[in-house]
Design a protein around this nucleic acid. Structure first.
Ligand code: ATP
Length: 682
DNA sequence: TCCAGGGGGATTTTT
DNA sequence: TCCCCCTGGA
């Protein structure tokens, strides 16, 4: 049940807001997300049906968190009926329903990064222009930015000076055609196509408007043009029941086309909008809040905020220097273990934040060797796994045998004697006769034009797919697991995986990952087997990294994540590592004069901490077997000296005096500070 | 024609 | 350190 007395007056005003657009603009930890979750509960108590409520956030992690909080207020049964998702998942849902209206088949394929690279590489090869991976990445980025800005590459602001632009323009067109031919969409299409859909089909737009009558958006400062367009199609401007919350200081998705100014212009875009601000921070102790505010105040063009907290003064923030990132990692993990033991803290109270994913590797090694349970959010761990992609490809084929991309991927997994040449011949035949690739395989089997060694395998694949599809047609929802078991056995997925790696142990792990993933099927419920499979495939494509689902979220483990994915979350104890020039701010941001965005990133990272924040950095790191010297981040200097304690922690054996001598602040000062720090800080 | 093994290259941030 | 591509053996 919702208790309005757990809210302060402006929060209450936003929660019980009735009609029309509203913006809640407030700093970190001021209870913006709580406004959204409580508003959902309030609406339902007012008799609004859960399925008429849509709440959007930006990361899968944040959406999951929100679902949990709503579940806490209303119970799981009701919270499951609320539409709670990321913009992309929302788009995927709409497309799963209506993509046929745009001339695609159902189900469609959602491409991952590797698929996109492969397509670009093929196009460049066809155009007879070679390209390094860097070029390919640049072109992909241009295409993505254009889609997110709802324009062609030539219309982008960067068009004049980006050297890849002429090529990107041509590739853009071919890329679009390639995706169409493959019946595939990329992540950007998940936003773009629903907008097109609603613009072309007012009847469908009306259907969605009727469905999503109350709309809320968390982290509104990160909305870009295409997401805004989607929102505008979904709500009626003046009469919009739209409540958005955000903080211009936490705008950290400029690379995706978000503009910090968008949130400040909300009332121009949605006329008559009410604006509410929140000032009280309920998350962090005083030192953390003041230090974060000090850093962010170095940005201009921001809305000045007046955040205060009553959670106590807090300790000064240690800012620690280590010889290398390996020692930095050792120290962090050691410290986590000691504090966990001393204060009887569960592991889940600790988070380690970093700027880029590869920084997690060394931490992961140490955590593992010290047997500290941990969980990595994001990164490439599950995303890039061959076995997961193969599984998905097979499942997609069951849903849609015309999915050529998937068929090409797995037809020779495990090796079935259908190599590049055989495949090319099949491809040509398909093109000549206007057949889908799978039907070309059938035809080649029938008239014997398939090489001898490929026949047996091809027959197996065709039959397995036919049988699975036939079984699926009739099956009740709970019949899905058996059908898939049989199907995967027939296409030898297990064999492919176990043979696929010389290291048997690794192969077994790979297979167990696939099994775990299939086990997650149990959590998906839909009217029939086909719909369940469809949902499953979309879910995994959108967020392949949440392998364990709900029980994992509850697991007691140290959390490791990038600052970007930490947005909206909070932890009692936070280690923000890699506080060096080149990492935070990142070198590329420095080169591109984008330091203010990095400063916001630093602000977001610092404000995740509730009780204690520790900033760490290394003098050197190793990249591609090269030692790279690192200087302290400029953001450290922006924290007032009375709020931080600078220390140098050298390898075991260095005396305290020696350590102190190396601090830039001088021996006496450093020693004085050492006394102030709590006894087991080293 | 298929495929395993070695050499070369690569790291912003998310969906 | 891990991943992709190419080449030579079967
Ligand atoms: N009125 C309140 N009384 C007590 N605690 C509150 C209140 N409002 C919010 N909180 C708590 O403060 C913390 C931060 O709230 P919340 O996550 O909603 O902030 P936020 O503004 O969304 O933060 P951010 O911008 O960093 O995402 C949460 O632990 C929340 O439960």
């Amino acid at each position: 049940m919702l208790d309005l007395s757990t809210l302060n007056p402006p929060q209450r005003q936003a929660v019980t807001h009735r009609e029309g657009p509203m913006l809640v603009l407030a700093g970190a930890g001021s209870g913006k997300t709580r406004v959204i979750t409580c508003r959902i509960a309030w609406l339902i108590e007012q008799g609004i049906r859960a399925e008429h409520i849509l709440a959007v956030s930006f990361t899968n992690k944040a959406a999951g968190e929100m679902r949990e909080r709503v579940g806490g207020l209303l119970g799981r049964t009701v919270s499951r009926q609320v539409h709670l998702s990321t913009f992309h998942a929302l788009g995927a849902t709409m497309l799963r329903e209506d993509i046929e209206a745009l001339g695609y088949q159902r189900p469609f394929v959602i491409l991952d990064e590797a698929d996109r690279f492969r397509i670009i590489r093929d196009i460049l090869r066809e155009l007879r222009v070679g390209g390094t991976r860097k070029t390919e990445a640049r072109i992909l980025a241009i295409i993505s930015r254009a889609k997110n800005a709802l324009c062609s590459p030539a219309e982008l602001p960067e068009a004049r000076y980006n050297p890849e632009m002429p090529r990107a323009q041509r590739v853009h067109t071919l890329y679009g055609q390639a995706l169409r031919n493959l019946n595939a969409v990329d992540f950007d299409d998940l936003l773009l196509l629903p907008v097109q859909l609603m613009r072309q089909r007012p009847d469908l737009r009306e259907k969605y408007r009727q469905r999503f009558r109350y709309v809320m958006v968390d982290e509104y400062q990160d909305t870009n043009a295409i997401q805004l367009a989607l929102l505008e199609e979904l709500v009626q401007r003046e009469r919009a029941n739209l409540v958005v919350v955000g903080d211009d200081d936490q705008s950290i998705y400029a690379f995706r086309g978000a503009v910090a100014g968008t949130i400040l212009e909300f009332d121009q875009r949605f006329p008559g909008a009410r604006v509410v601000t929140l000032d009280q921070n309920y998350r962090s102790v005083g030192t953390i809040l003041r230090a974060a505010n000090a850093v962010i105040s170095h940005n201009d063009q921001r809305r000045e905020k007046n955040l205060w907290s009553t959670l106590g003064a807090g300790d000064p923030i240690p800012s620690l220097e280590f010889p290398t990132d390996a020692e930095e990692a050792e120290w962090i993990v050691d410290r986590i273990r000691r504090v966990a033991e001393r204060d009887a803290r569960p592991w889940r109270h600790f988070a380690i934040l970093y700027r880029i994913n590869p920084q997690s590797r060394i931490l992961e090694e140490v955590l593992r060797s010290q047997r500290v349970p941990y969980r990595i959010i994001g990164g490439q761990s599950l995303f890039d796994r061959k076995e997961v992609k193969d599984l998905l490809a097979w499942l997609r084929l069951v849903l849609n045998p015309r999915d050529e991309l998937s068929l090409r991927r797995v037809i020779n997994v495990p090796p079935r004697g259908i190599g590049t040449t055989t495949l090319a011949a099949l491809d040509q035949r398909a093109r000549e006769d206007g057949l889908p690739l799978l039907d070309a395989v059938r035809a080649a089997l029938r008239d014997g034009s398939l090489p001898e060694r490929a026949r047996e395998g091809a027959t197996q694949v065709v039959q397995a797919l036919d049988e699975a599809r036939y079984a699926l047609r009739e099956a009740a929802a709970d019949g899905l697991e058996d059908i898939l078991d049989t199907f995967l056995m027939r296409v030898s997925l297990e064999k492919a995986i176990l043979q696929g790696d010389r290291n048997e142990k690794i192969a077994r792990i790979r297979w167990s990952i696939v099994q775990d993933l299939i086990g997650d099927l149990g959590r998906i419920d839909a009217p029939d087997a086909r719909a369940r499979l469809d949902r499953f495939v979309t879910d995994v494509s959108l967020d392949p990294r949440t392998d364990g689902g709900e029980e994992d979220a509850d697991a007691d483990a140290v959390t490791m994540l990038t600052i970007h994915s930490s947005k909206g979350l909070e932890f009692p104890l936070v280690f923000l590592c890699g506080m060096s020039e080149g990492l935070l701010p990142h070198q590329r941001a420095i080169d591109e004069h984008a330091v203010p965005e990095e400063r916001r990133l630093c602000y977001v990272g610092m404000t995740r901490a509730q009780e204690r924040l520790v900033l760490t950095r290394a003098r050197a790191t190793r990249r591609r077997n090269e030692r790279i010297a690192l200087r302290p981040s400029r953001f450290l200097d922006e924290i007032p000296p009375d709020l931080r304690i600078d220390r140098i922690v050298d390898s075991v054996g260095a005396s305290q005096a020696e350590r102190a001598e190396r601090t830039s602040r001088g021996l006496a000062e450093a020693l004085a500070r050492l006394d102030a720090i709590d006894p087991d800080a080293s």
